[in-house]
Amino acid sequence: MLSRTASDLYWLSRYFERAENTARMLDVVWNLSLIRFAVDTQAEIAAPLAITGTGDHYGSRYGKVTIQNVLFFFTLDADSPASIYSCLRQARASAHAVRGKITAEMWESVNSTWLELKDIRQMGLQAYGETAFFEWVKNRSHLFRGATYGTLMRSDTFRFLRLGTFIERADNTARILDVKHREGQQESNTTLDYYRWHALLRSVGAYEAFREMFSETINAERVAELLILRPEVPRSLLSCLQMLCELLPSIEGNAGLESKRLAAVQLARLQYGDMNHIVDIGLHDYLTDFLRRVNELADTIQSEYLELV
């Protein structure tokens, strides 16, 4: 496959996945902002800025952190690279470049997503409904994934799309977990803690999984175990790395030695990981190290497969 084509496929699914995860993250924030506790929820509202490292950019544009501004910044703001609008614009541009490689149904799902998003932007987030919008984004992502699974030939086209999905998902899950964790550390409020972890599980669609696997009250350590070490949860770090390690060796040709090695090392760290060990290191330090490794892997995939050298 052409390196440029592979790159467009990879970034198409990365941006679509990022849009979906952004919607998931915002859904939590939006719901928390509606639940008025005795305490200030300002930290919750600012959380997405911390997760994505866009605090400075936001500050220079909007100044004060308000729920309305944060929501706009991450949804329909065309000038914010972190917005769902920008992600889907990029996804659509990548899809356009490889429309001959993907099936008509996949292209149509990306293209109609983009056309509908432009209409929604005209309408405005409040008029469309915040929750309805987050659901719409998730549904569009499900639709694209469904079209991909249901119609695309299992070739390198499929594999590079999947590669992008799991690199992005591993990164996003780690970030969202890290930020929630840090908030939990800052102030101890049992009720608020419960809602925080509850909301986090809901945001990644893992609430039911938690209930099924653990009979105890929702708490930080168990949520972390679920989202880091459990292979049953499709958004866990372990699941993402398992997929990456399955995908990389199945790509045609002998390129990508270093990518395969890095992925395998990280998979082993998770497969043989232990929650007690993670608690000893400290969850934040553990996740910081994980993010560094995932980004090193992403850079290596970029240089070994996708760049025109």
Binding site: M1, L2, S3, R4, A6, D156, F160, I251, E252, G253, N254, A255, Y305, L306, L308, V309
Partner: peptide, 14 residues
């Protein structure tokens, strides 16, 4: 790209 009198395309497998 052109190399040694032939045209090649850059692919993920070389």
């Amino acid at each position: 790209f052109v190399k040694d009198g032939f045209v090649y395309m850059r692919t993920t497998a070389g």
